[in-house]
Design a binder for these strands. Sequence first.
DNA 1: CCCCGGCGTGATACCGGTAACATCAAGCTC
DNA 2: GAGCTTGATGTTACCGGTATCACGCCGGGG
Lengths: 335, 335
Amino acid sequence: MSEIESDAAPRARVGVRDVARVAGVSAQTVSRVINDHTSIRPETRARVLEAMERLGYRVNNAARALGTRTTRTVGVIASDATLYGPSVGISALETAARSAGRWIATAYAEAADAASVVGAAERLLSQGVDGLIVLAPHAATMPALATAYAGLPIDALHTDVGADRQAEGAALAVDHLVALGHRRIGRVAGPQDWLEARSRDEGVDHALRSAGLGEGPRWSGDWSAAAGAALAGEIAAAVRGADGPTAIVVANDQMALGLVSALRAAGVAVPEDVSVAGFDDNPDAAFYLPALTTVRLDLAGEARRAVAAVFGMPDPPAPSSPQLIARASTAAPRG
Amino acid sequence: MSEIESDAAPRARVGVRDVARVAGVSAQTVSRVINDHTSIRPETRARVLEAMERLGYRVNNAARALGTRTTRTVGVIASDATLYGPSVGISALETAARSAGRWIATAYAEAADAASVVGAAERLLSQGVDGLIVLAPHAATMPALATAYAGLPIDALHTDVGADRQAEGAALAVDHLVALGHRRIGRVAGPQDWLEARSRDEGVDHALRSAGLGEGPRWSGDWSAAAGAALAGEIAAAVRGADGPTAIVVANDQMALGLVSALRAAGVAVPEDVSVAGFDDNPDAAFYLPALTTVRLDLAGEARRAVAAVFGMPDPPAPSSPQLIARASTAAPRG
DNA sequence: CCCCGGCGTGATACCGGTAACATCAAGCTC
DNA sequence: GAGCTTGATGTTACCGGTATCACGCCGGGG
């Protein structure tokens, strides 16, 4: 344990050649062990592993990347960290990547600003990423990136790319409200130029049509609680009017929080006067007042799918279907 | 614009040598331009820049890292993505790093599990990071890492490392309550084995002492809304009891949300029966019911400080002081 | 007028893995 | 048993920047 060079020694970096010398093999053989090549005698492998252990060897990914022209890293372009979906998305992607022996590199950008997104992509590319995953992309983003970086694998989370289950989840919320007896269902969508917002919106449309209902009033906001609150005035008026909606499907939990909060301030009770359903199943949503009915997506599964897609790995098990979490913010409409 | 090789051409990677050839200079000169060396004639620099532009040159960071033995990247060890603080912390660090011409690499770990944290550190080191920043570290984490990686710059966010303003912020909340007339102030701390929790807790202690008040009852939870809710029963009982607290300082907004929600369910009104203050100024907090009084930290400033510290850069302007955001969840105690 | 030092630039080697190819022994095929 | 395949390993060169040292030129001090 207590070796001479334990402390101040500038411990020269140990490389494959050092390991090779100690193990009495060639550098190439060490490389093979590192990469789990077949065709290594178990005994040789053991000797190499022992040498690596002894020397405290750690691969140098920069060198590896230089040689292989691949970094085993996917670049993730994220936007707003204060939103629940994207934050959890990054973490889910990191986990998925790690368990596939890959890495992520994250860059933040203004999703609505094409130049900013391209800037993020450029930064990631100079890092040598093998592909890109865009979190919650703006509608114009994907085509722009796909054009600019033809040949580079690009995927997305929180979209319909790769059959994401956004629409399916939105339909779940609508069906739930219909089952409770609602006929006039309004909605607060996300920004219409976000793919994720569109998917969810289309899911609502589809479900309403299937139920033989009209589209109902539609508002939209930027995903933030503040945006939800800003709409409360209009929505309160609509709810009070004749033939006003008796339920509102909101495109994410945070906007729903803001909406419910401001509705209450405006004297509209949830769910008595109007039911509200969210989307995401933010862990906080169970503690909103009232506890929010929402839809949970299998984000981990989506992340695994996206990572596998970018690296051209075999398809992982499909993400599980979205799930409705019924809580107190939805109830049967007033008699 | 429309060049021959615009499309299908497998566009062989362009390197410094290609740029050099086109610009009629040596590769070394191109390197000098890339790195903003002095001693380059403006005219030469212009020619090189033009060639880079024309060829669509992009530096290969792997190669650069290999040569310089430095990646200009700091590894960030994060834990739970569903918590507001850490999520925003990563984003703040990325921004701070980028504006300093550096990068971050993120790895997630179970903060309470030393092996998991070391695993994350190992992954980051094999990526070649030049230092580590730990987000919201567990008490045992920093010493363990510092020991294992002596010589590697390590810093942290959400702690007292580097004179973080946690304690100062906590004191702000207490002072606010004292000013409102509260004398019996309880608290919900974070997990005691987290440095961040300790800092905030000590800030509360200090402020209480300064105000000549006793410590008051203390509970603690794991930062989640669910944890806050789980404590509501005990806290409700305490509040109802003789000499019970009239105000509770909670170590973060999410626990405060859970607590308030469950207190209300238990028939304890906030702020009428008890005032509650949070910490973080989660953007959602303004829309909790009641809107939550909380403390805002200059996370961007803290991130700049941490990045500068790790890279040994000159100290940036000190982060600004925490700020109390007074809202509806705190009020004068009942006459 | 010569030497010195700094500026602008070029030539070469090297960072630490790995691809590609070579080598050699053992096991098979016929 | 010659010829071939396969397994296990070694050799060499290369990936794309940059550290390092070298070189020619110019202006100024003595």
